[in-house]
Design a protein around this nucleic acid. Structure first.
Lengths: 152, 152
DNA sequence: GTCGGCGCTCAAGTGGGCTTGAAGTCAAGC
DNA sequence: GCTTGACTTCAAGCCCACTTGAGCGCCGAC
């Protein structure tokens, strides 16, 4: 991958599909190696690193976590240890997100057809007399209520 | 629901399960009606409004959108017009989120078992020789590759 | 030699939804 | 009257991943 050809940061940025300012930011937080001061050129090995960052970000990793991963790769200890731990943790988060997202979807499908004039007459918004339930839990109730949100 | 009993903001907050500072913030952005200055009491009608806000937020609406909804309720024109439009738009977003979340989940399930020492030997991170694909699209490729991420 | 374009650094700004801090006010109980 | 504690205001801070702006340097082409 790294063939030694030199590029300016602008060229790297457009090939990688990120902004040059983002690359400088990654350097500043240690996600990409610090380079010499002054105008400079990089070889295209940084492209691979940027691709790694992009995929890891899409998978839900935050930059500090990605930094941890690249640290392990760079110090030769191999990425798999952190990779497994971080992925397992992320997977829990993502599964939770999936549940929440599905609940949102169900709620919104009903809301899209809602003809109620106020929350008081609409089962999408449970009444709040005393004590308060988890608002997120209210999204689930819609499934029970069916497709019509008007209170019986 | 509103029975005229008066509460301090702290009481309202603990009943509604939100912080008092959040209630003040909602007032400041016009999501709750502005009240007189000085120490004051609210009746519990604000509880219903807070519940509405909570459910709408869980469904994915942002505060400015919720403000639009409560505006329609309060001016007597009924909430259904905005509700339908906003919900339909949100539904599109949420469906997209659902697709992305499922892709993340698939990727992470493979990553959790990954034993690769570097991204170069791992199909979770596609090689980045020339040109760059959408990083999010790389998450999908894993499904094709199966459960083993080691490059063939 | 001079012009345009890209590069550099550092600081500050963005958005969303709040929280936190400082400093002051009020009400109830002793 | 005094203390205590809950309440009040307003401004500033936080998180995250960058972007934007100011003010300057360097390089190649004409």
């Amino acid at each position: 991958m790294a063939n030694g050809t030199q590029f300016t940061i602008g060229e790297i940025a457009s090939r990688a599909g990120v902004a040059a300012s983002a690359i400088r930011y990654y350097e500043s937080i240690g996600l990409l190696p610090e380079r010499e001061r002054g105008q400079r050129r990089d070889d295209d090995s940084v492209l691979g690193r940027l691709a790694f960052i992009g995929v890891a970000q899409s998978a839900g990793f935050k930059l500090p976590e990605i930094k941890e991963l690249v640290g392990e790769i760079d110090d030769g200890s191999g990425m798999s240890a952190s990779m497994r731990v971080l992925s397992a943790r992320k997977l829990d988060e993502v599964e939770e997100l999936l549940v929440r997202t599905r609940a949102m979807k169900g709620w919104l499908e009903v809301a899209k057809e809602c003809g109620c004039a106020s929350p008081d007459e609409c089962s999408l918004f449970p009444d709040q007399g005393e004590g308060v339930a988890d608002p997120a839990a209210a999204l689930e109730l819609v499934h029970v209520a069916g497709r019509d949100c008007r209170r019986p």
